[in-house]
Write a protein that binds this DNA or RNA. Sequence first.
DNA 1: TGCGGTCTTATGGTATACCAACATACCAGG
DNA 2: CCTGGTATGTTGGTATACCATAAGACCGCA
Lengths: 233, 233
Amino acid sequence: MHTADDTDLKIDHIPQTLREIALEKLRTAIINGRFKSGARLVERTLCDQLGVSRSVVREAIRYLEAEGLVEIAPRAGPMVARLDWSQARQIYDIRLLLESHAARACAERADAQTKARLTDALHALDAAMSQGGGAAVYQATTAFYEVIFTTADHYIAWEIVQRLNSRISRLRALTLAAQDRRVSGPARMQQICQAIIANDPAAAAQAVRDHLTEAAEIARRLLEAEAAGERES
Amino acid sequence: MHTADDTDLKIDHIPQTLREIALEKLRTAIINGRFKSGARLVERTLCDQLGVSRSVVREAIRYLEAEGLVEIAPRAGPMVARLDWSQARQIYDIRLLLESHAARACAERADAQTKARLTDALHALDAAMSQGGGAAVYQATTAFYEVIFTTADHYIAWEIVQRLNSRISRLRALTLAAQDRRVSGPARMQQICQAIIANDPAAAAQAVRDHLTEAAEIARRLLEAEAAGERES
DNA sequence: TGCGGTCTTATGGTATACCAACATACCAGG
DNA sequence: CCTGGTATGTTGGTATACCATAAGACCGCA
């Protein structure tokens, strides 16, 4: 009881720096497509938009660059990172390895609490899908996978997967908008959820593989259609 | 012929910024153990040591933070990231997935050039081992794996693996210094090399798994011994 | 000696100034 | 009209100034 009181009095919540706020806003703006792939990120313009000095903007850009969301082209300054199919394919491959591994571990150790959290996350995803909101679907999907990775104690893999997902956020938005994916996406995640609830590691890993194989194929087709559209114009 | 001349005249080599130089030096200093795990990285001290302004140092720290080599503790400022066994174990697990996958792909597609490059890299590693230099062994090991990942066209996975290796650099130095590892490490990499030269993907993947399973076990033992030593003092 | 209060110093967060380099616009001459 | 030279504006790289906060040192009093 005395220990609990000490913990309650501890000041854990450090005020957020401007840098942290700016970083979060820029990252979200990139993920949400406000800044398009290849778009220049001009420091002074961002300063005006964010209402902070160049120091803050520059430091935020450094993070985003290290995360792969921003690239610096010679003589051109920072731009939102571009993504070709080769890179996207690699990202889907890595996700497949890490996510199937996490789902397996999660299925091995899922207790009643985990199962309830997963079921809740799936319901939230269905609700987001019904409302049609892209960002809300993105967040609900992220929340679902977060349950899996944290249950599996795969914190570093989760960090990596989130980074990779940010880099393909544009592709994810496209695939989520694709008609066939809107039907099969939730069904795939339902399968993942059920395998975990059944404590069946092999089925959970396989459900993830099916899910991502399909997502990658849709993404590839969409990128090709886009490239064909550009070639004709 | 006209095309070749145009390419030759292109100015590709952008001068390095101070920021890039400082980042490289700091990263190397952390990896090489000059700045110990948990050590405070005081900006003004680093400015004096590097001979640059605080802007440069701060921006470099932002990269290192995003790479996981530096952490910011509340009310304490930047320090070299600490690593516990749980994190290290996760890192070895992820490496195992990504490296075995790359070795498999490399073995599937290795041509004579790849085989020669791998053999050369292994010789360089043996030479570095004979000279006993820790940093040289680290670099030679990195060069060996780089051949594998680039042959496999796994560029993003290689980026991730390098990041992860930086985070466990201290552990890697410890395990490389361990007597039994000095004997078995080159033998393990010889096995990886031979499986790839034989174009045997399954053997290559298995050789990587054996290699990393052993490295992780040695690391675990060393960390435990270290923790036991600290508990007695 | 221990505790509380005050002062000083160190440090990170943030803003701003300065400069170099590059890209673009404009003008003059052939 | 085309080309070369010059001027201008934009932008990133870097240094420095300012400020708030936290930690530590110091001093006085009981």
